[in-house]
């Protein structure tokens, strides 16, 4: 379970989140929506522990977090499969999981390629694959389908939803698309500007 209790956050005195409270239950997928600059990404970084709230409390029982950042954030000097292996407890013993996950996201032919050889959409899929192979009890998804075409967007959102459901994990899913939120999420958290 993840609880934000009157959490506030600001960047250099510019308020982003103001006394935000919500709870994410175990196994729940919560879509986070709102206008640009309302603090959706900040909310995820707070949930991941990358930022600390200026005020309020964050209580989390999740221990393993898989984060799909807005940018793919792949290690540029490593091939796609090595980027996936890097997050495994034993990178040399993946038991075929790497190729399995790459097939799931449609990148089976790109295992040996480097990030600069991939298109924007392929990089996002590789980043998604990294989160999937890592697993985790909480998925933080920051507009993971933004750069994808409609068909891929639908198939990947179904795949992601299925994987999260099967593992019993929870997810915070930032999106601008109501249709994505409707496919993926159990609930929608709508953030106003300076929530």
């Amino acid at each position: 379970m993840l609880t934000f209790d009157r959490v506030s956050f600001s960047y250099a005195k510019k308020p982003v989140l103001n006394e935000l409270s919500f709870t994410l239950s175990d196994g729940e997928i919560l879509a986070v929506m709102g206008p640009s600059g309302c603090g959706k990404t900040t909310l995820l970084t707070l949930a991941a522990g990358l930022n600390k709230p200026k005020a309020g409390k964050i209580i989390s029982t999740f221990t393993k977090i898989a984060y799909v950042f807005q940018e793919p954030r792949l290690f540029p000097w490593m091939s796609v499969e090595d980027n996936l292996r890097a997050v495994l407890p034993e990178p040399k013993q993946d038991d075929g999981r790497v190729s399995e996950v790459l097939t799931l996201v449609g990148l089976s032919d790109c295992a040996g390629q480097y990030p600069d050889e991939l298109s924007g959409g392929m990089k996002i899929r590789a980043s998604l694959a990294r989160a999937l192979i890592y697993g985790g009890d909480l998925f933080l998804l920051d507009e993971p389908f933004a750069a994808l075409d409609e068909a891929l967007r639908r198939s990947l959102s179904e795949l992601l939803k299925q994987t999260i459901r099967q593992s019993g994990a929870s997810a915070l899913f930032v999106t601008h698309q109501l249709s994505d939120a409707q496919i993926m999420a159990d609930r929608i958290l709508s953030l106003p500007l300076h929530s």
């Binding site: 991941a48 522990g49 990358l50 393993k64 977090i65 898989a66 984060y67 950042f69 940018e71 954030r73 290690f75 890097a86 997050v87 990294r130 890592y134």
Partner: peptide, 12 residues
Amino acid sequence: PQLIEVAKVYKM
């Protein structure tokens, strides 16, 4: 710093 965050989040 973005890759440092990746390493942190994925507990490398």
